Amino acid sequence: MLWALALIPLAIAFLPAGLPAPTAVWIAFVGAAVTALTYRVKAAVDAKGVTIRFGLLGFPWRHIALADIHEATTRELATLRDGGLGLRFDPVTGTTAYKVRGGPALALALANGRTVLVSVDDPETGAGLVNDLIAQRVTRIA
């Protein structure tokens, strides 16, 4: 779906009253670069926490320490609800969403009451791993 961003200016350029060809090519190039940098999101879970990386270069990225996570669950995200695709923040609910598509997402409930959503392919495995690591931390402390 995001690759359409690069193709739309080219389609406009071929319309009789469209953009000049060099302008359309430039817009398509910028659209393709933005798409390549943001077309996927990855979440890696380890004993230190969860690291979220965007796009081809993994930037922007965010690390959430395990001590800051209260619980991990899964949630179904709609493609255009909650502000659409991309990196989204809702100041009312305190929810940050890393979305590249609708569908299953990893939902991290943070200790400060905020929520982080990440659209990934297998959020159940990630949520289970985060919850197991939290349980191990609590067991070691007690």
Score class of each variant (00 low, 15 high):
residue 2 L to D: 09
residue 3 W to M: 14
residue 3 W to K: 10
residue 5 L to C: 08
residue 6 A to W: 03
residue 8 I to V: 12
residue 8 I to A: 15
residue 9 P to L: 08
residue 10 L to P: 05
residue 10 L to C: 11
residue 10 L to R: 07
residue 12 I to V: 15
residue 12 I to T: 10
residue 13 A to I: 12
residue 15 L to K: 15
residue 17 A to N: 10
residue 17 A to Q: 03
residue 19 L to P: 00
residue 21 A to N: 15
residue 22 P to G: 07
residue 24 A to S: 12
residue 27 I to Y: 14
residue 30 V to N: 01
residue 35 T to M: 13
residue 36 A to I: 05
residue 37 L to I: 02
residue 37 L to W: 06
residue 38 T to R: 00
residue 40 R to K: 05
residue 40 R to S: 07
residue 41 V to N: 04
residue 42 K to Y: 13
residue 42 K to H: 11
residue 44 A to C: 11
residue 45 V to G: 00
residue 46 D to A: 05
residue 47 A to H: 13
residue 49 G to P: 04
residue 50 V to K: 03
residue 52 I to T: 03
residue 54 F to K: 10
residue 56 L to F: 09
residue 61 W to R: 00
residue 63 H to L: 11
residue 63 H to T: 15
residue 65 A to K: 00
residue 69 I to C: 08
residue 71 E to W: 12
residue 72 A to K: 01
residue 72 A to N: 03
residue 72 A to H: 02
residue 73 T to Q: 12
residue 74 T to W: 04
residue 77 L to R: 05
residue 80 L to C: 06
residue 80 L to M: 11
residue 84 G to E: 09
residue 85 L to H: 00
residue 86 G to L: 01
residue 86 G to Y: 05
residue 86 G to H: 06
residue 89 F to A: 14
residue 90 D to L: 04
residue 90 D to M: 11
residue 92 V to W: 10
residue 93 T to I: 07
residue 94 G to T: 13
residue 94 G to K: 13
residue 97 A to K: 06
residue 100 V to T: 15
residue 101 R to H: 12
residue 101 R to D: 10
residue 101 R to E: 14
residue 103 G to V: 05
residue 104 P to K: 14
residue 104 P to N: 15
residue 104 P to T: 07
residue 105 A to K: 01
residue 108 L to S: 12
residue 109 A to M: 14
residue 110 L to V: 06
residue 112 N to P: 04
residue 113 G to P: 09
residue 113 G to Q: 12
residue 113 G to C: 15
residue 118 V to T: 13
residue 120 V to L: 13
residue 120 V to P: 04
residue 121 D to S: 00
residue 123 P to L: 00
residue 124 E to H: 12
residue 125 T to V: 11
residue 126 G to V: 02
residue 126 G to W: 01
residue 127 A to H: 01
residue 129 L to F: 02
residue 134 I to V: 08
residue 135 A to M: 00
residue 136 Q to E: 08
residue 136 Q to G: 15
residue 136 Q to R: 15
residue 136 Q to F: 06
residue 137 R to G: 15
residue 138 V to Q: 10
residue 139 T to L: 13
residue 140 R to S: 13
residue 141 I to W: 06
residue 142 A to W: 10
